[in-house]
């Protein structure tokens, strides 16, 4: 099955306006995933960040990286993901290098560092037109219900 919106939503519990993955471009086994977030003019947060000068908040770029990482985790641990656990972002080490604007396509690459049933670490990069806008190392926990 292709990674259409329906399949993305079968893994991620997030929904609009807090679903930040629109497409999956590439998957390399369980080591790497490349996903896309299309930054629309109509995103609600642009009303306040900032009036007349819309810039995607860095924390939401991190959120998009985390959502891509959850999809990668689901490829590595389908038996865990199938139980629809809660995913909690626990630690972020990030660098923000350039702004992302309405109309940009955020290309998010997430690479597996270490996955366990109860926790995961990924190294992620977000780019716009090959320009790196952010890098982050994410540590998150997986809590089965």
């Amino acid at each position: 099955m292709d990674w259409n919106q329906e399949k993305i939503k079968s893994v991620l519990p997030h929904r609009e306006p807090f679903l930040f993955i629109d497409e999956i471009l590439e998957i390399e086994g369980t080591q790497k995933i490349v996903a896309v977030k299309k930054i629309k003019d109509s995103e609600d947060y642009f009303k306040g960040h900032f009036p007349g000068n819309p810039i995607m908040p860095g924390v939401l770029i991190i959120e998009a990286m985390a959502q891509a990482s959850v999809i990668l985790f689901s490829l590595d641990r389908p038996h865990i993901a199938a139980k629809q656990p809660d995913y909690y972002l626990g630690k972020v080490k990030a660098e923000f290098l350039a702004p992302a604007y309405p109309g940009d396509q955020l290309i998010i690459e997430s690479n597996k560092v270490k996955f366990l049933d109860s926790a995961a670490i990924t190294d992620t990069v977000a780019k716009v037109n090959d320009r790196i806008v952010a890098k982050a190392n994410l540590v998150f926990s997986i809590q089965q219900k």
Binding site: K91, V113, L116, D117, S118, A119, I121, V139, S141
Partner: peptide, 22 residues
């Protein structure tokens, strides 16, 4: 907790170039 444990394991694996089975 599980977050700290995985950080230790990941740092350990990187430093000694080994894989620690879960």
């Amino acid at each position: 907790d599980s977050l700290k444990a995985i950080e230790i394991v990941a740092a350990f694996e990187k430093k000694y170039r080994i894989i620690v089975p879960e």
